[in-house]
Amino acid sequence: MKAWQIGMVLAALLLLAGVPWYGSDVLVQFGINALLLAVLAQGWNIIGGYTGYASFGNSVFYGLGAYGVAIAMVQWQLPFGVGMVFGVVLAVVFAVLLGIPVLRLKGHYFAIATLALSQVMTAIVSNVGLAGQNIGLVLPPLNNDPLFYELSLGLLTVATLTIWGLTRSRFGFGLIAIRENEEGAAVMGVNTTLYKVLAFALSGVFSALAGGIHAYWITFLDPDSAFDISLNVKMIIMAVFGGPGTVLGPIVGALSLSAISEFLSSEVTSIAGLFFGLVIVAAVVLMPRGLADMIRRLRKTGWRYFSENIRAHRL
């Protein structure tokens, strides 16, 4: 990265960090949601974008993180920080235990297995007494939106720095090699199973932390909201819209799509949903490699960029 790029990123970070001081309460609340979604998109980026495994089950990590915090704080009267650690431990255990068999599956099969796991988890948690069954848990309220905002921003920063570190490390190269050609990676000495599980777990750690922050902020959670399956799709769309397998793409995707959808849903809710769907359809056809790729290439190729994308993938 060049000096001016680092400067730009730092300036953007400062601008974001200042929101609680100059922005409205509504903006801060929107910000918390958008930043946590960006963390989820970044978490997904590790397993989906860099390793090439399209997980539809990252909502499980989010839910485990949320329940980790809720159970620790409500049932055991432990501080929030301990709850976050508990949530992360749950997520890592899940990633390792289920990752080992499920990461053997490829392509659609992996996607479907993870989707099914996320359905199973909702149903299982609905039957666990400690987790409040399907009634849910109510956390002690903490009315401090600026704190939650800065926590979310901090988490997103750490997640992004981690990914940036990945792109220049041996581990990250191993993941990319797996994505590009798993067998080729193995014969070059990449321990593919270990790397995939590590990537899944790392992706789970960030998702769980996001879930933990969200639970404490919202102060209430039940299985349907904690393991919300549509969350999977949201984070994937945001990552893919921005540019999967890039350091900043998923953030751009998450923030821009959150803003658009917030703006539209303040008008008519169902129109916002409809628009969301149309954006996805159009994006897949016109810019299948995401905003990051589009911005990079549009300057060189101009409008031909879109027709070239279609020509490359049509029957």
């Binding site: 954006v279 359809v281 029957l315």
Partner: peptide, 26 residues
Amino acid sequence: LLNLVIRAPMFNTLLITFGLEVVLTY
């Protein structure tokens, strides 16, 4: 529509049909 993306990576076809799902639902 779908013939336009049929040779794209499997992920993109998943996403486009998901987009259709959202559109149809709303």
